[in-house]
Structures are given as C-alpha cells and as structure tokens.
Amino acid sequence: MSSVVRKQSQVGVETRPGRRSALFKEMAAHKICYLFLAPYAILFIVFTVVPVVMAILLSFTYFNMLQPPQWIGLHNYIRLFLEDDIFLIAVKNTLVYATITGPVSYLLSFVTAWLINELKPKARAFLTLLFYAPSISGNAYMIWRIIFSGDTYGIINGFLMYWGFIDAPVQWLLNPDYIMPLVILVVLWMSMGTGFLVFIAGLQGIDPRLYEAGAIDGVRNRWQELWYLTLPQMRGYLMFGAIITITSSFTVAGEISNLVGFPSTDYAAHTIVQHLQDYGSIRFDMGYASAIAVILFFMMVVTQRVVQKLLNKVGE
C-alpha cells in the first residue's frame, strides 16, 4: 500500500528536466502539510537540533562555562583515547552492558509480548502489568539496594546468614566482582518498558485473518507462524524497539550511580554516560563532555545500522 504512494511522490523528483520546479509545485500543493509539521519541527529544531549542533562544535573546544570556549581542534578526542584510562574502562563496561542487556532485554521483551498475546484478555492484561510494572515505577529499583544491602538487614545477606551459608555479611554493591552482574540483573528487571508495550500493541493490531490464511497456506506450527507471518508484520515496531533498546542500553547511568555509588569501587561499573556526567556536571569541562557524547553517538549509530541490516533479514 505504502509503496504506491511513495512512487507517486518520487515521480516529481526523478524526472530530470523540470526537477526543481516539480518539487516546488508538489511542496506548494501540500502547504497545509508543512503547516501541520511546523509546530513540531520548530520546537524540535530549537530544542534538539540546535543544541546537538552546538554540542558537536563544543567538542572541539575547551569550555569551562565561565570563559568563552577556546578552539583546540581534536585535542579532546586525542586526550580521550590516549590519556584517559578511565574513559577506556567506561567504554569497555558500556560495551559489556550493551552487548548483554541490549539483546537479552530486546528478545525478552518481544518473546514475552508474543507469549502474552496468545492468552485470554484478562490474563494478558494481568501479565502485561506484572512485566511492565518495574519500569513504570520510577525509583522502584531502589528496592534492590535493600535486597543486596551490605549489612545483615539486607535480604540476601539475611537469608544466607540465617541458613548458614556465610558468616559475615557480603558487601554485594561494593565488591567489584559482584557490581557488574548485579547492575545487569537490575537493568534487566526494569527493561520491559517502552519496547515491550509497543510490541504488545503492535501484536494486537495484526489482522487475525492473516493467520487464517496462513493456516490454509500450510503454516504448521507456532514457530513458522512467528517467522513467516508475525515478524514481517511487526517490522516497523521491531526497529522501533531496537532503537529504544540501543539508546537505553548504551546510556545506563543513573541506576548505576544510585545502586553502587558514584564512582563505583575501582570504576567496576563506570559507563560512558557516567564519565560524561563526571566531566559535564562535576568538573565543568563541557568541551570534553561533548566529545564523549559525540563518540557515544557514533557507537550507537553504528550499532543501529548493524541491527537494521539484521532486521531486514527477518521473515525471509
């Protein structure tokens, strides 16, 4: 359906000679559409595009927010990769988070949404709430601080000591060996968020007649149904979910600071965004912080491109 309309709109662009004038004609014919787009576009440019461009420019400067920025070329980037050991730790940690929590939470969100979708409406509503509640509830994840608290009142310590597995409380959130896995656990706990909700709504919107037709065409089991019928129908939602997952798994920061402190012991859980906050909000080195943001941006864009390639293969 959509390809027909796209073809129509490309006609004006592809005919060489009167290309410009045809384009203008088409734009003039849709004046009202640009009017619809205007409020969003103006706000978006003012509050998103301009600040991003400014941040990219600032990444080539030294800017301490008191004196005017000084142009220093690529110095911030050179400093990041050659002189800042902690940044390299942060890159490593962020990649570990992203490669574990990203795919796991993405697959869990989709699989759970898909399984819940098969249930009766009441059960479906109940389970949706159950899985979605942890991410809806703001600071609810702070309960994990009590669960893994380092004193004897911590739930895990309390039970392990009561049953005699350990003699003294373990500093779960301070020991570099445990910090990373625990943060990953908590992040996964609250990862059934936006993507999950959109998957549920998307699955609900698939026309049931499609499955009836599929059954006649010889779809034999639920896996074939998923691969040949459901997933191709979900393509846009899958990409949406992927982008949301990429942005959230590459930018874990606040949860880590609140759970294991800032900075965490030996920087065991230090991430790129935490590093950025350190320079942006504590040391007021905005040029350096902006350079960190630019690098993070490129990491996410590359990941997104790869994921897009993979998702295009779905259902083939």
Binding site: V49, P51, V52, L58, Q277, G280, A293
Partner: peptide, 17 residues
Amino acid sequence: LSLMFSSEVTRIPNYVT
C-alpha cells in the same frame, strides 16, 4: 538520529535558549 545523542550535553545550550 537525535534519539541517540546524549541529552546530558545539550542541557547547557537548552538552558541558554
């Protein structure tokens, strides 16, 4: 693309605006 740019560093320009 803008979804992938950290809002942390756009705070200052936004504050100015």
